[in-house]
């Protein structure tokens, strides 16, 4: 199936690239990302901006253009866009996290501090996110602006969120506290062996060395990839297969000298 907004309702990679302000602008602080690429007759965003940073002009079907140097990332456009197609991305939030402010119109509303699941343009779980702020703008006719913090590498991927589900909380690797969803996400991002999952998530690297979670991980990989469980080999085992005091290792080292 062809990809792109008119085929699957999600921006393709190229379409996404075409709407993103320059990387230097992201570094400077919050900025609007206007994911509106069709020539539809609509212009409330233009008027919503107190800084005249969005331009449509007299031709109402023109695609909105952002003057990124004028945008201060206030979010008024995101609150007013009837298509809910504007997001504010703040890449300057911290070294590892970015903040995404998005329009939200579902009940129940999240609460500040909630941990939620950040999802992509196609609704797939991407990474956990924390609700930083929930704000109501009068001009938005009820649309709520929710700000969430996400791992920076996902700031152009996460575009909505959902409440955590049972599987998001269900621990598969007890030693390292890795959840089923985290493992599934790793598989979807290309980890298709138990070893890959271990490297991506630390699942199986704890005190029990995977004794209790290995089979579960294989099952999840099989489920996600459609492979049969027999094809999913266990990871390569290494000594020590039980936890031992470091002193023992040191002693072993000594013997070889």
């Amino acid at each position: 199936m062809k990809c792109g907004l008119i085929y699957d309702g999600c921006l393709s990679q190229a379409e996404t690239a075409s709407v993103l302000p320059a990387a230097e602008r992201f570094a400077k602080g919050p900025v609007a990302v206007i994911e509106c690429i069709q020539d539809i007759p609509c212009n409330p965003c233009e008027k919503s901006c107190p800084h005249q940073a969005i331009i449509i002009g007299d031709n109402i079907t023109a695609v909105p253009r952002l003057q990124a140097d004028r945008c201060v990332g206030c979010g008024l456009c995101a609150a007013q866009c009837p298509g809910l197609a504007i997001f504010i991305v703040d890449a300057s939030y911290s070294a590892t996290e970015a903040v995404i402010t998005l329009p939200y119109e579902y009940y129940p509303l999240p609460k500040e501090g909630d941990i939620v699941m950040g999802v992509s343009r196609s609704g797939a779980a991407v990474a956990k996110a924390r609700v930083l702020k929930v704000r109501r703008e009068t001009a938005a006719y009820g649309t709520i602006l929710v700000s969430i913090t996400v791992p920076k590498k996902f700031m152009h991927t996460i575009r909505s969120f959902r409440a955590l589900r049972e599987a998001d909380k269900r621990i598969v690797c007890r030693c390292e506290e890795i959840t089923e969803t985290e493992i599934r996400l790793a598989v979807r991002q290309g980890a298709n062996t138990v070893k890959d999952v271990k490297l991506a998530t630390r699942a199986g690297m704890g005190a029990c060395q995977g004794t209790s979670c290995r089979r579960e991980i294989s099952r999840i990989i099989a489920e996600e990839t459609g492979a049969s469980p027999e094809e999913i080999l266990p990871p390569r085992f290494r000594m020590p297969v039980r936890p031992i005091p470091l002193a023992q290792l040191a002693a072993e080292e000594g013997k070889n000298d």
């Binding site: 199936m1 907004l5 008119i6 085929y7 699957d8 309702g9 999600c10 921006l11 994911e35 509106c36 690429i37 069709q38 539809i40 866009c81 298509g83 809910l84 197609a85 999802v119 992509s120 343009r121 196609s122 609704g123 797939a124 575009r159 909505s160 959902r162």
Partner: peptide, 23 residues
């Protein structure tokens, strides 16, 4: 048909919520 008939932004809201649009 083989493309979404309405405005992409309306389809995008559904997709973010995990609803498939099947052409």
């Amino acid at each position: 048909s083989d493309s979404i008939r309405g405005y992409g932004v309306h389809a995008a809201k559904l997709r973010r919520a995990g609803v498939p649009v099947l052409l």
